[in-house]
Design a protein around this nucleic acid. Structure first.
Lengths: 228, 228
DNA sequence: GATGCTCCCTAACGGCGTTAGGGGTGATGG
DNA sequence: CCATCACCCCTAACGCCGTTAGGGAGCATC
């Protein structure tokens, strides 16, 4: 059988980019735990060992995937108050991580920023400085927002992972967590029992907004009053 | 809750707790990627299959490890301003995740809180309510702090993972990241180039404090002026 | 026609999580 | 005193994984 795979007539041979896109398809289908070199290879009609011609190892492929995840990101419109723009950055970043399956886990603890993210950081820093933040404050604020979004989405998606492990959807898992809190002995955990409803409120949008507004309020303090 | 003796692998029977402690030792020695059922079993002088008598699967062992990581946590002294106490909570949480290798990755995206963390949450909520926060705000604030700390430490530890992959220590990796930023084309990335020093400042304590103070400022706004 | 580069292959290594099924040990109870 | 049975660990194996060694086909260059 000397005939090579026929799957894509426009295929220009494998590229690092086409590998990243294939990895993204596997990620959305099988999740991060199901993403293997063999599956990515099969996705592009090739055997696993062939990937190592284009990529040093799996870690490097995940770096490419990391950048690919940011490919769709678009900076918010450059109009209105800095606060509005910065908030929109946070909202879009979260939305991006939520949209692709396990995206937060892929991004988590990865150092290399990748071209797409670099562009976003550049733009964000530019706006922060224009808003009146000092160089150091702008750098710190950017890092702060990134840490919050990443930590939040990571926690946000954890019930989803638990949901597919056992039966049931996301809502059932969260409701079960609430029941577990309510079932605690009230004499040793009075606050957890009393606040079980608030702690397991499934409206994650509102919860994210809460933290985002707190951060925005905290950052505003750094500006001279006339620029807040 | 039985508390068995310290690590004598042969004398006592295995318990879930001794497994958690063994897993913690393997984690500190080999990191999360090197933590396997076979190694944990060897750590307690047993074969891998035997673990499945005490634990449903690896995921459940990681849940135990997650709780074990929180075992040393102590709530801050209950004196002084709420702000001081809440800040201390953040500092201690970060310190805990930094102290044990890969702790942030173990905790990341894990749903089950575990006994130790439940106790801390209970205490933290109690203080927030005592400080004057509404039930909902207290729950939200607790979640906000958790998300920030987790996201921050996860990013903070990523250069460390990269450092052990290639040669060099943490500082060299961070310095190399700074050089990479400085080497970008200044006409398309003027802000990244200009702020390279601030963005890769290795003083992570200061960077963490910055975000923490912003969050505290943001939370203070929610209180009536006389309780801030 | 030979050389050498590119890009994919087969085959294999050691390690992984997990399961099936078996054996020994000690308490229980007839 | 012996049968039973729950407990706890074992061997062996399955199918998956990341990664490497070495080979071969196609193609451009000399």
């Amino acid at each position: 059988m000397p005939v090579p795979a026929q799957d894509d007539p426009s295929a220009p041979g494998l590229t690092r980019e086409s590998l990243a896109q294939a990895a993204l398809r596997v990620l959305e289908r099988d999740g991060l735990a199901g993403l293997s070199m063999r599956k990515v290879a099969a996705e592009v009609g090739v055997k696993a060992a062939s990937l190592y011609w284009h990529v040093r190892n799996k870690e490097e492929l995940l770096d490419l995937l990391n950048d690919e995840l940011m490919a769709d990101a678009e900076p918010p419109p450059r109009t209105g108050h800095w606060r509005e723009q910065f908030r929109e950055y946070g909202l879009r970043h979260r939305r991006l991580l939520l949209d692709k399956r396990d995206a937060a886990k892929v991004v988590a603890g990865r150092l290399a920023p990748g071209r797409h993210l670099l562009g976003l950081m550049e733009d964000q820093l530019d706006r922060l400085r224009a808003a009146g933040f000092s160089d150091l404050d702008a750098a710190m604020a950017s890092y702060l927002l990134g840490a919050y979004v990443q930590g939040f989405v990571l926690q946000e998606q954890s019930p989803l992972a638990a949901a597919e492990a056992m039966g049931g959807g996301r809502r059932e898992v969260v409701a079960a967590a609430g029941e577990r809190l309510r079932a605690l002995p009230p004499e040793t955990y009075p606050n957890l029992v009393a606040l079980a409803g608030d702690l397991t409120d499934p409206d994650m949008d509102a919860r994210f907004d809460f933290g985002l507004e707190r951060i925005l309020d905290g950052l505003a303090v750094l500006l001279p009053p006339d620029r807040r």
